[in-house]
């Protein structure tokens, strides 16, 4: 694994991977390594963020990400407030700023936000002094998911340099895909988006990626395959004729994986639609790192909470 380079971390907000340099991404991953073995310790907590308050503001449903952030904050000894949206009748901008000011009044230190509107975390970061961590905003970014994805690949292969990575499925509706593309290409991988044209984003030609409309054409070349979930809840019309047809062309089946490299890394950000984008035999098979991704997510989120707080501490010094 690469020798840890020491940099001064100055970002008190984590909004998107597109903002980060390769060195910054690697620094987060190196820091996360220090948090990796916590789950096997007899006492799984450290006192680092004792007395700090982390607010989980989730305007959209989430199981994995939300619980992962809650556990990460708890393991750093921070207090966690869970904030949930009750109704969506108020306009987004007003709700956010209003909420933010109320939170500030309670003396909070870090806000973890998931919102259905892209740009909401950025807006929030301009309105409050606390650190803001993006836990997924609209179709924009999901930076901690991308960080745990590249962390997992680095753990398996040592480096992403020169790896061929396929991201398959619903790219258009996927903030994970967007963050992954930035993180993976910045770390030296070659990314191919694979799916039907109806699920490709309009902006695909501006991204540093290859595009393929056939999984069978490219599967033999891939070192890593990341299967995205079909996000029915975000789709207006019908992007493909039938689920069965999608599955036939783009599902990761046991037959299809036999044609891939024997050590291909199979990833999925969850939640899985078993039998749709991935067959159970593959999701639970020897190439799958899906549960490692979840475990690594915890280490990566601990690192992110630690670093944004460090940046806030340093900012206090400059003032």
């Amino acid at each position: 694994m690469s020798k840890s380079k020491k940099i001064q971390w100055t970002r008190k907000h984590l909004i998107g991977i597109s903002d980060l340099s390769r060195e910054e991404i690697e620094f987060i991953l190196d820091t996360a390594q220090g948090f990796e073995k916590f789950s096997t310790r007899s006492i799984k907590k450290v006192p680092t963020l004792r007395g700090k308050v982390v607010v989980n503001m989730f305007f959209e449903d989430s199981t994995r990400t939300r619980n992962s952030f809650t556990l990460a904050a708890s393991r750093l000894s921070a207090d966690v407030i869970e904030f949930t949206k009750k109704s969506s009748s108020v306009s987004k901008g007003e709700t956010l700023i209003d909420t933010a000011q109320n939170l500030e009044a309670m003396g909070i230190d870090i806000v973890v936000i998931r919102h259905n509107a892209g740009g909401a975390p950025k807006l929030l970061s301009r309105s409050i002094n606390a650190c803001v961590v993006n836990a997924g905003d609209g179709f924009h970014e999901h930076p901690t998911q991308a960080l745990l994805d590249v962390y997992t690949i680095r753990q398996e292969r040592g480096s992403l340099d020169g790896l061929k990575i396929g991201i398959v499925g619903d790219i258009a509706h996927s903030r994970v895909a967007r963050s992954d593309i930035y993180a993976m290409t910045k770390l030296g991988a070659e990314v191919t988006l694979i799916g039907p044209p109806t699920l490709m984003p309009a902006s695909v030609k501006d991204l540093p990626v290859n595009v393929s409309y056939s999984l069978d054409d490219v599967i033999e070349d891939l070192d890593v395959i990341n299967m995205l979930r079909i996000q029915f809840e975000r789709m207006g019309g019908n992007p493909f004729p039938s689920v069965r047809e999608y599955s036939h062309y783009f599902g990761l089946t046991a037959d299809r994986i036999k044609r891939a490299k024997s050590d291909i890394i199979v990833m999925h950000p969850g939640p899985i639609n078993r039998g749709l984008e991935i067959e159970s035999e593959v999701a639970d098979g020897p190439n799958s790192v899906i549960l490692k991704q979840v475990a690594n997510g915890l280490a990566v989120r601990m690192a992110v909470l630690f670093l944004v707080n460090q940046a806030a501490v340093s900012e206090g010094r400059r003032n």
Binding site: W9, K37, R317
Partner: peptide, 15 residues
């Protein structure tokens, strides 16, 4: 001093 401002930020490494 983890939450005190200092010249050089500490780097977390593994135990």
């Amino acid at each position: 001093d983890v939450n005190e401002p200092k010249e050089v930020q500490p780097t977390v490494r593994s135990t």
